[in-house]
Design a protein around this nucleic acid. Structure first.
Lengths: 203, 203
DNA sequence: AGGACTGTTGCACGATCGTACAATACCACG
DNA sequence: CGTGGTATTGTACGATCGTGCAACAGTCCT
């Protein structure tokens, strides 16, 4: 049980680098084993380190999962922002890019879904994690609100419009990730753009 | 540790009744403790029986969770069907009733959300559970397809329309259950009905 | 070069997990 | 009124869980 691998000599790493590698290992394990099979020992083996190191960098396994979720959220936000930036200056093109990017890598990814689910399963029991969830979703909606306003959606409809688009994109992303054979990413994008058409009322 | 309660004498129950009571206890524990805190012992204490009884009725804890999910799905389907039946004969009223009921008790319920999340967390790792998920969602979409067709949605748009409405309702239901303070059930219904308006193109 | 700092290891500990199994107690039936 | 069948109990077992901690080792500073 001591070690099946030849045990390479332990090497020091920059604290930030090591911390990030633990988060990445946690995300990989969540994607491969699911939330139930994700434990300190499995994550440590995935990262190639000793189990004790996780306690050294994180207050506990829940803190590591929360950090993984925050990291995933940051990855998603960065990818969405990059898509918006690539779309140029036309407001509608920027809005389309924002929602379409949700159905392409790296966002429509099984690893992200597993992380999300593992995190949701903590929301029910822990108040601090519930607040982290609320904050991250509020950030997503706020960004969407700006893009919708730039497309001319009037202020009094802005709030519900942002909620609607968030829900639609989330639902499509969820089912696309859970059962990828049911419909394609292109179809999801077409559905979302059609919904934006009716919201903006460009006719 | 033997027993904190006065231990009422063990009573026999009809197998179906006992089985159903275990499923109900599982759902309550999932709602209260979250997926992580749901174990054989906790469920047995919630149901007022011995832990061994769960093994007697179900092949394992995963089978109990799967049965709980199937039961929840049946509850949801029955509630939706009842709402449709109450709506009368007008196709659009029936469609509205179907989607609006998703945001009212007993569907928009924290216990259901917890069950759903616990089940999703098993989808990643187990193929048989992934198929159960696909089947249940296909059933939901099929029912929606019939209601949409009755409202005059043409055949070539029917498939994507059903996917879109399913995703929107799912996303709204998910966020409504995860953070109830963000928007209300009435607002969710209004969003969904507006989306149906644009799909059916009644203008 | 040598000492201090700390990243890292490896293991021990108690708790809890899911499951198996023999013993028990209830109930229907002869 | 026994008696067999089975729902139910209680517990034991091995595995795995998260965490704490003393010892080790790599790196940097003086």
């Amino acid at each position: 049980m001591t070690n099946s691998t030849p045990l390479p000599p332990p090497r020091r790493a920059e604290p930030d680098v090591r911390r990030q590698s633990l988060i990445a290992a946690c995300a990989r394990v969540l994607a491969r084993e699911g939330a139930a099979g994700t434990s300190v020992r499995v994550i440590a083996r995935e990262a190639g380190v000793s189990p004790g190191l996780i306690t050294h960098y994180f207050a506990g396994i829940d803190a590591l999962i929360a950090a993984t979720y925050a990291d995933v959220d940051q990855t998603v936000s960065a990818a969405l922002e990059a898509a918006v930036a690539d779309a140029g200056d036309d407001p509608r093109a920027r809005l389309d890019a924002f929602v379409t990017a949700s159905f392409a890598p790296p966002i429509a990814d099984r690893a992200l879904l597993a992380t999300w689910i593992a995190f949701w399963s903590l929301v029910t029991a822990r108040a601090d994690i519930a607040r982290q969830h609320d904050d991250q979703y509020a950030g997503f909606r706020d960004r969407l609100t700006l893009l919708l306003a730039a497309c001319g959606v009037p202020g009094e409809r802005l709030r519900l419009a942002a909620i609607a688009v968030t829900a639609l994109v989330d639902g499509l992303w969820l089912e696309l990730s859970l059962s990828p054979g049911c419909f394609s990413a292109d179809e999801a994008g077409a559905i979302a753009r059609a919904h934006l058409d009716s919201l903006i009322g460009f006719l």
